[in-house]
Design a binder for these strands. Structure first.
Lengths: 139, 139
DNA sequence: CGGTTTTTGTATGTGTACAAATCAGTTTGG
DNA sequence: CCAAACTGATTTGTACACATACAAAAACCG
């Protein structure tokens, strides 16, 4: 004799995630129009880890092979990264940050951190910490 | 004399949101392959609110005009919704759920709720409530 | 050693997602 | 009442995001 569960769209995690992400993307593209959040993630990873093969890079930023290829292509077109064939392994394509890419990163990190803060702005410090910890566990 | 803040990609909200969303999408498409989360949101909204003009529908599910058009087109192609010109306002296109769409919704709501649960599975009841409340405030 | 399996990169197709431009129709204000 | 402002829908262009399929190279293994 269970009641028919009525589905409330606005109470579904997926829907909330999509909307919060929308807001975050809007903040980011307003603050750093040169690159997308996805592209920035790749730049940040390269800045932190140094040159990586395209596939490794993809894994390091949670993008599949097809997606990372497109992102790298677009970053390369902007001159922010370069690709070079690997000497040892002929299948590999090593992706590196260019000087221009490093300059862009250095010049926008601060702003990017501000965007993260802006996204979390409605919450106080303790709440932010809780949210981040909970999100991290849903990964 | 502030320390240069080092940017930790894995600690950024945007990155976490993307990864949690990825996991959620994977769960959903595994459980309900017929439609995407986006399409399901539209169906759910129509089931709850009844026929709406395309633009209104878009707003009701947080999609812009171009996006909702694509989603409605694909749902129409599957026979899950129909569109009809509005009698009163000639600009409007009324979107309604078909019988088939209603059947699909009725037959998958339970599973969809299960997907929401699955996404939150790593958290206990109290934590889920906290997360949902915090996410709702970031909208 | 030689064959099977994996890995890497690439290509293609489908589906969001948004900006910007356009056009038709509706509403409003002078 | 009519021009101006607004709204609804569509189109185009760019950018993820993943599935699938493929070729070449590398790793593994019996």
């Amino acid at each position: 004799m269970r009641k028919r569960p009525h589905y409330v769209l606005d109470d579904q995690v997926g829907y909330l995630l999509r909307r919060v992400t929308q807001r975050h993307l809007a903040l980011f593209s307003g603050a750093i129009p040169q690159v997308t959040t996805t592209q920035f993630a790749v730049i940040a990873r390269l800045a932190e880890a140094g040159p990586l093969s395209q596939n490794h890079l993809g894994r390091a930023v949670a993008m599949d092979a097809a997606t990372i290829k497109g992102v790298v292509d677009r970053l390369a077109r902007q001159g922010l990264v370069t690709t070079a064939p690997d000497a040892g392994d002929k299948r590999r394509l090593t992706v590196s940050l260019t000087d221009q890419g490093q300059v862009l990163f250095a010049g926008t990190v601060q702003t990017a951190l501000g965007v993260s803060e802006g996204t979390l702005a409605p919450l106080d410090g303790a709440e932010r910490a809780v949210l981040m910890a909970l999100l991290a566990r849903l990964t």
